[in-house]
Design a protein around this nucleic acid. Structure first.
Lengths: 253, 253
DNA sequence: AATCTTATTGCACAATATGCATAAACGATT
DNA sequence: AATCGTTTATGCATATTGTGCAATAAGATT
């Protein structure tokens, strides 16, 4: 298969626009993407011409343009996994009280694409659209664990495992061992691997072909989610994920 | 300035994914874009690899992918014209009871990027993200009227003015005459030009440099918005648009 | 005013996208 | 189940197109 390189570059550039950095200038993008400033400049001009980007005031910096309103509206009405999952996710939230989220693969990262809020005042909060790593946090590890081995290795051996907290697994071998356990157990646990004080339990959702499609998480503050309830909670998450997988399989799309 | 052609093609392809046609296959896109099937096929493969698109079930058709969740979340928190406009729009809705919307330019079309719902049961309803023509409907005509003349002409003389209803102006000369009146009056009116039974009154919003930035509309069923109230309503819309323009000018971005 | 940083552009070269024709995959129909 | 008709993917040669470099221009900072 032959891929169009400049299109890939344009997407890499657009991917720099995140919740954390919604406004960017040429050099910043150039540094993040390892593309030369001339290339970035030209692609930005193209994206701006096509209204995917717009320039902010007089600063010359760029942010997402009006075209994305079109695409956001299409997403909103998209009948898909989210719709099938939502009722099950709400049942799970009512069972445990904690935040329930769905994460999907995006190259070597994951994106939260559906969330049901916690009942508690002190709670884990993950905005839909948030980008997260794959190698830490239970939601990422599950996606990684059930990926075909070659793809998995490429990601793990990519450009090093960034340390987010003291609990982040940064050794590829230890990580592989952990992923193997996750495949055996059918669920993953994270205690502050990505964010201090967070605890989450996560199970995989598969598509019709048995390929990993998403991960289903419950997450909350570590002081409320004790290991004593792990067996019970893990069972609940696994069953919910299985229910979604089944619904998903029966939906012809 | 040199623009990257394959990036433009990719955006044209992505632009085919709309509220009306959220799922598409190669030939359909090829017909809509006038790109050969091989080109479309290769760009689609690239967009799918980068998770901008995903294939639906076994049909092989494509729809928007997970990457757009990232961008949609960035839009949602984007501090911009919408935020400045919303309070003014709500005031205007409370004044007239009808739907109030904001439309922006996207190449030779417009996109609704903000909407405040009508108070009435029988009402005009425009979803955010909806794509509409420029040459008909007051919201489009205002954007067109205040565009720099060369750009305006390019659009009007583009590929013909499509007839939406019996009231659509399809003669370029008549349209130019109408646009001139709109510039003189500072507002536009449409009686069922794009959609039978709709009536709207629209005024322009400008940016810091005096360039047209958006159009502010009130729209409702024609039986409720009578010409008798036009002067009063037009005044209200113009004042609201002026207020937004002023706020916008004072915001340093 | 002078210096430093950042963004844009002209040009020549090399990389890369393209179209055509072909093959492969898929669906529909009998 | 086999055939036909669509639709999609790919190999290859060619020419278009994107690219880096260096220079310039535009802004920011001191």
């Amino acid at each position: 298969m032959t891929f169009i390189k400049s299109v890939e570059k344009a997407i890499d550039i657009l991917s720099c626009f995140t919740l954390e950095t919604p406004v960017l200038k040429v050099v910043e993008i150039s540094n993040q993407t390892n593309l030369t400033q001339s290339t970035v400049s030209r692609i930005l001009a193209t994206l701006a011409k096509k209204k995917c980007l717009e320039q902010v005031g007089a600063s010359g910096k760029y942010r997402l343009g009006i075209k994305f309103y079109q695409w956001a509206s299409v997403l909103r009405q998209k009948k898909n996994l989210s719709d099938l999952a939502r009722p099950v996710m709400e049942k799970l939230r009512d069972f445990c009280g904690e935040e329930v989220t769905l994460h999907g693969l995006d190259e070597n990262r994951r994106i939260c694409f559906e969330a049901v809020k916690s009942r508690f005042g002190v709670a884990k909060v993950t905005p839909v659209g948030k980008i997260l790593p794959l190698h830490c946090g239970a939601g990422g590890k599950v996606l990684l664990a059930f990926l075909p081995p070659p793809e998995r290795r490429k990601i793990i051996e990519g450009k090093g495992l960034e340390q987010f907290t003291s609990n982040t697994i940064v050794d590829p071998l230890l990580l592989e061992k952990d992923l193997e356990k996750i495949r055996r157990d059918g669920y993953a646990v994270s205690k502050g691997e990505r964010e201090e004080g967070a605890y989450s339990i996560v199970a995989p959702i598969f598509d019709q072909n048995g390929k990993i499609a998403a991960s289903l998480s419950i997450s909350g503050p570590i002081f409320r989610l004790s290991d004593l309830d792990l067996a019970k909670n893990a069972e609940a998450v696994k069953n919910a994920a299985k229910e979604i997988t089944t619904n998903f399989g029966e939906c012809i799309d």
